[in-house]
Write a protein that binds this DNA or RNA. Structure first.
Lengths: 339, 339
DNA sequence: CTGAAAGCGCTAACAG
DNA sequence: CTGTTAGCGCTTTCAG
């Protein structure tokens, strides 16, 4: 039989109210009775029912996490760190991988509301949120005044934690230009990051070079396969380039694969830069030159922000946007300076 | 103000019981009243409170998932597939990454019980479960009769989904031997899989060769770094080997890195085999020869088994152990047959 | 300090 | 078919 607070009260010869008190350590309870109760708890192996508790205090101590794709190393690492930090603060995670599907995202959001998560961390990028119809689920979250922080840019009215992708991309492309490259391709797109593409364009313009649209590939993808087939496409089009700035490391690894299959050596013939500095970046061959984000610090900030807004969710607060600097990590995939 | 079933009832001019009925679609309700209620639900934008419901029906429709390390590509992929399949059946996931820490595992388990998850999928391998003291949390799960299925071998009395690592490892090592290798090292250990090590040993013995213990590395790790430093150690010891059978792909990638840093060419000088066939296996250079598990089928089986045992959790059922065959995938890291 | 009692929002008999 | 009512296990006034 399942034991409840009632059995404990009986065992300890007190009322359930008192048991509740020592369980939550709030009100003062005489030492001897507290001991008596704790003993009973242990003896009966009592586990308080979190559900019943949640119903009253209206807090589930649960956070919903929405990521686009868990099997992507970047999101996996981010999720791991988030779950670790949040756990330390007493919040387990309900994790949902949206597969970039807006409908899924909406269903998951609804589920979060039904289950009364205390907060949501939003890392998905299902589609263009410019379209107001695509944002109904975000409105729902707001209506239920559920705390939220987002790792996705371009969301108004929401706490955001962002990497400075614009600057990161500029630095990466500048590095390429400094190495003497003039014809630099880009494999990116909306699924990866708009700002990284902007940074790429800006860096080229700043240096007085011409942006060649035929060297830019922008689908709504972010996988190995995407990098691979994009290079194939570039090659098939006889595109003329000596470097590729990839929207992320995974794309870069796919790109390198395609390049080498075409007997194009990286970095000798073509230089490649990635973004994110995932684990694999330093382990693949050639090791990737890439842009590193301070991911742990970013998660720290996100968690703090989330907890802060959960605590004062009655008071309206101005949404914050915290931007973190990115850092270029130079490895092998671009070769050394040509001078 | 938060709207409840009460407001809906009022709006639709019926009792809360009737509202509950149409919400759950169980009992028969007159069509007109049903419509009336559904309208009210929509108008008020009512979201049923899952918590309150769970308290009564004693089902949270939630599954707890325990993995050793989410940032490991293998576990990330497994988690993604599990969450996808389970979601389709109506079960969201509380995900916990244990970092192979037994204490964490115990705390997470306790949390699962407090939160009354309906089932647990167990993929961790925190430590030697031979020690009875280390299993107290598993006992707890049983005591609360929470359904469970495990991807971890060597757990009695629990539904298990397993890959045939013994056979998989034998096939991998046999392949090496067929290629002419006689001095085959192994980087594995308990964190990876005991059976893979056994398979390695068996294959060697079957072929009338000698097992050389100085060629076997068995720490409680399973990371890139582990593969990397193990090869370094082997090399420092001037170990004599022409092939390495790695406990998993990630270790293999680390091993290759160390080999190449020592100017040892893979596969020309040393052949390397991995295990798992993670995404990266086909993308790294050289592409890994590895052992593939039918991971989707395994997850299907796990989910079916879990749901089955959740449904009839009153009746005692005999724990099942389902073993799936593994398949050798030949790529580049072992070279071709020497004949 | 402690107990009695009133719910939290919903489901499940049990009557009508 | 539908309404009434009794809880689920716990927290929280409100009195002692």
């Amino acid at each position: 039989m399942k034991i409840t607070i009632k059995e404990v009260a009986q065992e300890a010869n007190v009322s359930i109210a008192t048991v509740s008190r020592v369980l939550n350590g709030k009100d003062k309870v005489k030492k001897t009775t507290r001991l008596k109760i704790q003993e009973a708890v242990k003896k009966l192996n009592f586990q308080p029912n979190h559900i019943a508790r949640a119903m009253i205090i209206k807090k589930t101590k649960t956070i919903g996490l929405l990521v686009p794709q868990l099997s992507n190393e970047y999101w996996a690492l981010l999720s791991e760190i988030i779950q670790e930090k949040l756990w330390l603060k007493g919040y387990p995670l309900i994790l949902c991988s949206t597969d970039r599907d807006l409908d899924k995202e909406k269903i998951f959001t609804k589920m979060f509301i039904e289950r009364m998560v205390d907060g949501i961390i939003y890392c998905s990028t299902a589609s263009k949120y410019g379209d107001q119809k695509e944002r109904t689920h975000l409105e729902l979250i707001k209506r239920h005044s559920i705390a939220m922080v987002s790792f996705t840019p371009d969301m108004d009215d929401v706490n955001c934690i962002l990497g400075d992708h614009l600057q990161g991309a500029i630095n990466a492309v500048q590095h390429l230009i400094d190495l003497g490259h003039k014809k630099i391709a880009h494999i990116g797109g909306p699924a990866v990051s708009r700002d990284r593409e902007f940074g790429y364009r800006n860096a080229i313009v700043i240096n007085g070079l011409q942006v060649d649209e035929s060297l830019i590939i922008r689908e709504n993808e972010e996988t190995y396969q995407y990098g691979y087939k994009s290079v194939k496409k570039l090659l098939a089009n006889k595109a003329d380039f000596t470097a590729v700035f990839c929207g992320n490391d995974i794309i870069a690894i796919g790109a390198i694969k395609a390049l080498e299959e075409a007997s194009i050596n990286v970095p000798k013939d073509v230089a490649v830069v990635g973004y994110d500095d995932i684990n694999m970046a330093s382990l693949c061959k050639p090791a990737l030159t890439t842009v590193q984000q301070p991911i742990r610090e970013m998660v720290d900030a996100a968690v703090d922000l989330l907890i802060e807004s959960m605590e004062k969710n009655n008071k309206k607060q101005v949404p914050k946007k915290v931007v973190f600097q990115a850092k270029l990590i130079i490895r092998e995939s671009c070769g050394t300076y040509l001078t």
